[in-house]
Amino acid sequence: MGISAFIDAVEDREKSVTVLNRESVDPLYRMLDGMFDNDNVAVTENQDPDAPSDVVLLRDKQTGSLAISQMDEISETLLLVNSDLYVTGTVPLEEVETPEVVAHLSDVTFTVSDKQKFLLIHISRHIESLALETDGGILHSSFQQLSRLRDERGTADAYRTLADSGVDVHVYGVGGWEPPAFADRLSVHAGSTPELQDSWFVVHDGNGDENRMAALVAEEIGPNEYRGYWTFEPRLVREILGYLETQYV
């Protein structure tokens, strides 16, 4: 079983996103709808005289669980920014904030490209930030090209910070690069297999705490087009960890 098989095997949850008493402009609502566009995620708006304005609700139809965020939280962290925010290191890893509604879109398979790709980039930083906050355990991260650890300033800053922490960091990807100075504090798994060329994953074992376990797994299915999901389910995270440790570590 490989990374691709983990994506194929996930049982997508059906979720609904509802904007209550919307005051935000139409283009912002369309951006929200476009960002979360998915067969298993329905985006609607509604009026409730007893609720405040511009509240976004996410409901998991299987479990009934509910997450709540303000529209401006989602706008400022996702809709009105782009990947340069993290590529250039504008937001340090210690300052990554993820609205509850975004985090709880877990266990849903997304196919993303262009602007939507930022959804997966943000969740990657969320998991890296969770590992840093935990200051322990093991983090596995795939970059397709290991050179991103040197060439993307924001990525280099994030992993230099992680390398200096108590986290045991394993990085994966195609080699043929000039490692940065902090690479000697990482466990590097270089190769040229199709899986390493196409896979994007960030997985943290929680350092013994199930509430801090997280995984994102995705694969490139076309030029700059990815298919994948993220999860905080301990069983799924353990299965992915088991595969990585058996296959690579």
Rank of each mutant, 00 (worst) to 15 (best):
23 E>K: 12
96 V>T: 03
38 N>D: 14
89 G>T: 10
4 S>M: 04
37 D>T: 11
245 E>V: 11
100 E>N: 13
202 V>Y: 01
150 R>C: 00
120 L>G: 03
187 S>Y: 08
222 G>T: 11
49 P>Y: 07
244 L>V: 11
85 L>A: 10
92 P>W: 15
170 H>M: 03
80 L>C: 12
58 L>R: 02
124 S>D: 15
211 N>K: 12
235 R>S: 11
165 S>P: 09
113 S>Y: 13
207 N>S: 15
198 D>V: 10
126 H>Y: 10
205 D>H: 07
93 L>Y: 08
112 V>P: 00
93 L>V: 11
245 E>A: 09
199 S>Y: 00
245 E>Q: 15
101 V>C: 10
38 N>K: 13
189 H>G: 06
191 G>E: 02
231 T>R: 04
138 I>S: 10
194 P>N: 09
134 T>H: 06
169 V>I: 14
80 L>P: 01
6 F>T: 08
165 S>L: 09
114 D>S: 15
43 V>L: 08
58 L>W: 00
99 P>M: 13
139 L>I: 13
196 L>V: 12
10 V>C: 07
114 D>F: 12
39 D>Q: 10
126 H>C: 08
73 E>Y: 08
155 T>C: 06
23 E>R: 15
226 Y>A: 01
109 T>E: 09
156 A>Q: 14
192 S>K: 04
206 G>Y: 00
32 L>S: 03
31 M>Q: 15
11 E>N: 12
218 A>F: 02
213 M>Q: 09
112 V>T: 14
18 T>F: 07
10 V>S: 04
72 D>I: 07
88 T>L: 09
59 R>S: 11
5 A>F: 10
47 Q>E: 14
11 E>M: 12
163 A>K: 05
99 P>G: 08
35 M>K: 09
209 D>W: 07
205 D>G: 02
232 F>V: 01
221 I>N: 01
120 L>P: 04
131 A>N: 12
104 H>I: 05
112 V>K: 07
55 V>I: 14
83 S>D: 14
89 G>D: 09
208 G>E: 14
194 P>A: 04
65 S>D: 15
61 K>M: 08
106 S>P: 03
48 D>K: 13
198 D>F: 11
34 G>A: 15
94 E>D: 15
233 E>G: 07
199 S>W: 02
20 L>K: 09
185 R>W: 06
94 E>Q: 15
150 R>Q: 09
224 N>G: 09
146 L>A: 00
161 T>G: 11
150 R>W: 02
93 L>D: 01
233 E>M: 05
155 T>R: 09
18 T>V: 12
95 E>P: 08
1 M>H: 13
176 G>I: 05
12 D>P: 06
81 V>D: 08
69 S>W: 04
224 N>W: 06
148 R>Q: 05
175 G>H: 07
147 S>Q: 11
5 A>W: 08
228 G>E: 01
20 L>H: 06
16 S>M: 11
3 I>T: 00
40 N>F: 11
151 D>C: 07
121 I>F: 05
87 V>A: 12
43 V>E: 03
165 S>W: 03
152 E>P: 02
180 P>Y: 06
174 V>Y: 00
195 E>T: 01
217 V>N: 02
30 R>K: 14
199 S>Q: 02
171 V>T: 07
139 L>R: 02
125 R>G: 06
245 E>T: 14
226 Y>C: 02
193 T>V: 06
233 E>T: 11
27 P>M: 07
139 L>S: 04
142 S>H: 02
158 A>Y: 04
17 V>W: 02
201 F>S: 02
68 I>Y: 07
